[in-house]
Nucleic acid binder design. Sequence first.
DNA 1: CTGAAAGCGCTAACAC
DNA 2: GTGTTAGCGCTTTCAG
Lengths: 348, 348
Amino acid sequence: MTQQRKKPSKAPANVTSHDVAKAAGVSQSVVSRAFSANGKIAPETRKRVLGVAQDLGYHPNAFARSLVQQRTRIVGVLIARLDNHLYPKVLDAFTAQLWAAGRQVMYFNVDDGGDIDKVLRTALQYRVEAMVVASITLSSHMAEVFCDAGIPVVLFNRYLDDPNVHAVSCDNVAGGRMVADAFLDAGHTRFAFIGGHPDTSTNHDRKGGFMTRLKERGAALSYALEKDYSYDWGRNAAHHLLSQKGPPDALFCASDLIALGALDTARAECGLRVPEDVAIVGFDDIEAASWQSYALTTVQQPVDLMLAETLAVILHKDSQPKRVTVPVTFVERGTTRPRVPSGEVVAL
Amino acid sequence: MTQQRKKPSKAPANVTSHDVAKAAGVSQSVVSRAFSANGKIAPETRKRVLGVAQDLGYHPNAFARSLVQQRTRIVGVLIARLDNHLYPKVLDAFTAQLWAAGRQVMYFNVDDGGDIDKVLRTALQYRVEAMVVASITLSSHMAEVFCDAGIPVVLFNRYLDDPNVHAVSCDNVAGGRMVADAFLDAGHTRFAFIGGHPDTSTNHDRKGGFMTRLKERGAALSYALEKDYSYDWGRNAAHHLLSQKGPPDALFCASDLIALGALDTARAECGLRVPEDVAIVGFDDIEAASWQSYALTTVQQPVDLMLAETLAVILHKDSQPKRVTVPVTFVERGTTRPRVPSGEVVAL
DNA sequence: CTGAAAGCGCTAACAC
DNA sequence: GTGTTAGCGCTTTCAG
């Protein structure tokens, strides 16, 4: 004979632990204990309280709890925009792992010209326990504010010469160098770089590594165009580059999205064969890079590793701000030519 | 002579309004007023207080405020996963618009087999003022719980025959019908449907509209395979379908991602020409659908409209739960053949 | 315009 | 085990 639980036809907006206490004939603190894992309470009392609570539609108020515990369990995540296909994956994995660690994610983004500082100040008001910032840079002023507040900030895929912030990124310089080597080894001679936002450290480092390595091996970058990380920009830039006289025969794009646009334009608009006429390499290794129509050669960012490092900082509240750089992998697919052992070429 | 503001080398973790009050020589409530837009306070007092607050690194505690105001300004967003390329865009637009309306987003996701109810209960504890749930369905029990708590739930791209939840989706049935018409008008005869998760309303409605319309015009669906909304599934299903005897000559895929996989397989693995040998249509109109290598014909979901409807519900706390269905658009690109005016074909 | 006081709903000692 | 109590940091009457 289970008794039908009575349910108020219209719950009075906010049921509090007091209401539950009264209905269950216990004190309010017993209700509190019933909901806390290690609260000293008789098993049967807890059971009864929990039952009453459910009947009444009671849910502990996390705001009240956080206030007294001085602990919100909220982590702020700020991503400029999710339009780089890598970030949705990052956000999802991140959210899932934080959830597993009992944390909630407060998600922020900023549209172009948006006030980043205002966003960060809001995060501060919600007392986030950590803040991860991706694809965007914060002012060193705000970095200091967070530092003063004792809230760790970790820059994802970006860094700042600021002792107050953590930064985890992949080895963008090494990635650029790998691409240079691949091009050189395959016998290319005219190199171009299609970049993303010119004032991002990722863009800067990828280009830097590329150029440096070219130079080290006696070659040089012929063209460099930079604007943003979009497919459309890849198309425009490639069109411009490939339709001129003495076009490049090797294109390094600062992101896969750019590379995909460049690839489409090279083939469809310029009637070029890839990689026979022009080789194209991207950066990131987003899902679409492996799609059959593209089979894009690219530099893979080890997202999982970067995530793990970020979580380590956040969850263990790592002592000193540290700058982590994880290694990248060159993924050869169909948009680059096979390498010619350079020894043999030079031998004569 | 601007005076250098003193900054404590190490702020004592939490600066409260009391600290500011003391330092500014005012009462705590004045500090509170200084930070509230319509607080009655002398302009110069406010200025001074704000100055002191900044020096001390004070940030109002949103938790304390929410507690007393009974208002968190947090909206919960639960998306199964961001792997449908439409959702990152949705989340971003949504976050931006909520931000403009002074709301924060608490983001949740559930991995396969995850406990949705637990997620929702957590959202309840954080007193979200509204909950939007995308690409996933909640139990009618939780729908009731939210209803009792007076928190509007809006299902995005899904619906439930539950009087307690709002639902906004596009006209999936009409979309399916449009595809049937396009295929029929172009003279196709053997139709296949590659679906996503079989137990989703979107999948059901798209397929339903497609089948119904075929039947209405005297045709029939030859094959239907359903599994999930991924590129890989599109590849596998298409491979299976197209490599058998009497293969379909028209493929309707329940999402663009599936269609892209099918398209790649049809061309690269099966050596088929699209649309000459087989026509392929997707659903969603994600960015990649318009990429030159694909030029996928698809049914476009008016994301902006759906977003606007969702926001209307949340921000205006719309009275009665309502079910909104917005119209879709058929976008003809390169994976379908031109239509033959049906009158002429049948005329003889 | 400013200050004092009463909670918002909860946890965490502290007694019993 | 359970009840009592004192706040967590803030907004909001209500006096002055």
